[in-house]
Amino acid sequence: MSDPLTHFNDQNRAKMVDVTAKQVTARTATATGTIRMQPATLDRIHAGTMKKGDVLAVAQVAGIMAAKQTSNLIPMCHLIPLTGIDIHFTDNNQDTITATATVKTKHVTGVEIETLLAVQTTLLTIYDMCKAIDRGMVIDNVHLVEKDGGKSGHFQFGEAPESQA
């Protein structure tokens, strides 16, 4: 095999990849995902009448906290000093909220997992805050939108692999 597995040691046991020799570079990753709900649920979020409080404010803080805890939850992720985390919401004024997170660092490894975890946790928090009135919500289409920095360079969702550096 020309591409050796990087997360196994010489005994074929899991290991965290050694990134000691990698270059420190600015790295950014953006991910997005949606949560679909009943129209009445979105109306109550807009009106600020959910019993647990401001749904989007709590979800935003939860997503930020999650990104900072990634290495505690995902076994092979490195502990990375994050330099910025931003979460935005849009909705279709009907039944869907989209959360988009951007995470930044200046370090030797990227922040793709941190931004994906931020989005997932943000959406799960929306579910938690609204489940008393709508247990049928669906979290969907969570994916990396873009990443930049590091040896692998730039990635843009939907671009053909050969056009990515």
Results as ranks from 00 to 15, higher is better:
residue 147 K to S: 02
residue 127 Y to L: 08
residue 122 T to Y: 06
residue 142 V to F: 06
residue 34 T to C: 10
residue 99 A to P: 06
residue 147 K to F: 01
residue 84 G to Y: 07
residue 66 A to N: 01
residue 14 A to H: 11
residue 89 F to V: 03
residue 133 I to R: 10
residue 108 V to I: 14
residue 37 M to V: 01
residue 31 A to W: 02
residue 18 D to K: 12
residue 59 A to E: 00
residue 134 D to F: 04
residue 89 F to C: 02
residue 13 R to N: 14
residue 151 K to F: 14
residue 11 Q to K: 15
residue 2 S to A: 13
residue 15 K to G: 11
residue 129 M to D: 05
residue 127 Y to M: 06
residue 42 L to E: 00
residue 21 A to P: 01
residue 61 V to S: 07
residue 160 A to W: 13
residue 55 V to N: 00
residue 120 Q to T: 14
residue 78 H to K: 08
residue 148 D to W: 14
residue 3 D to A: 10
residue 26 A to M: 10
residue 155 F to R: 08
residue 11 Q to D: 15
residue 8 F to N: 04
residue 89 F to R: 00
residue 23 Q to F: 05
residue 34 T to F: 10
residue 111 V to K: 09
residue 104 K to S: 13
residue 76 M to T: 10
residue 26 A to N: 12
residue 67 A to G: 03
residue 71 S to E: 09
residue 160 A to E: 15
residue 36 R to S: 10
residue 92 N to V: 03
residue 163 S to M: 07
residue 46 H to N: 04
residue 41 T to H: 01
residue 95 D to L: 08
residue 27 R to Q: 10
residue 14 A to F: 11
residue 163 S to A: 09
residue 119 V to S: 07
residue 58 V to F: 00
residue 144 L to I: 04
residue 153 G to T: 03
residue 74 I to C: 09
residue 58 V to D: 00
residue 117 L to D: 08
residue 26 A to Y: 13
residue 90 T to M: 11
residue 39 P to N: 04
residue 107 H to I: 06
residue 71 S to I: 08
residue 160 A to Y: 11
residue 15 K to N: 15
residue 73 L to I: 10
residue 88 H to Y: 11
residue 152 S to E: 08
residue 145 V to A: 15
residue 113 I to T: 14
residue 82 L to F: 02
residue 130 C to P: 03
residue 74 I to F: 05
residue 109 T to V: 14
residue 100 T to H: 01
residue 130 C to A: 05
residue 51 K to T: 03
residue 40 A to T: 12
residue 76 M to W: 06
residue 91 D to K: 05
residue 117 L to C: 14
residue 85 I to P: 07
residue 139 I to H: 05
residue 72 N to S: 11
residue 134 D to H: 06
residue 30 T to M: 12
residue 39 P to D: 05
residue 44 R to I: 02
residue 56 L to G: 00
residue 82 L to M: 03
residue 149 G to A: 11
residue 106 K to Q: 15
residue 60 Q to V: 02
residue 56 L to V: 01
residue 156 Q to V: 13
residue 159 E to W: 11
residue 91 D to M: 04
residue 132 A to P: 09
residue 124 L to D: 07
residue 46 H to F: 01
residue 111 V to L: 10
residue 15 K to F: 10
residue 125 T to C: 08
residue 148 D to C: 14
residue 4 P to D: 09
residue 2 S to Q: 13
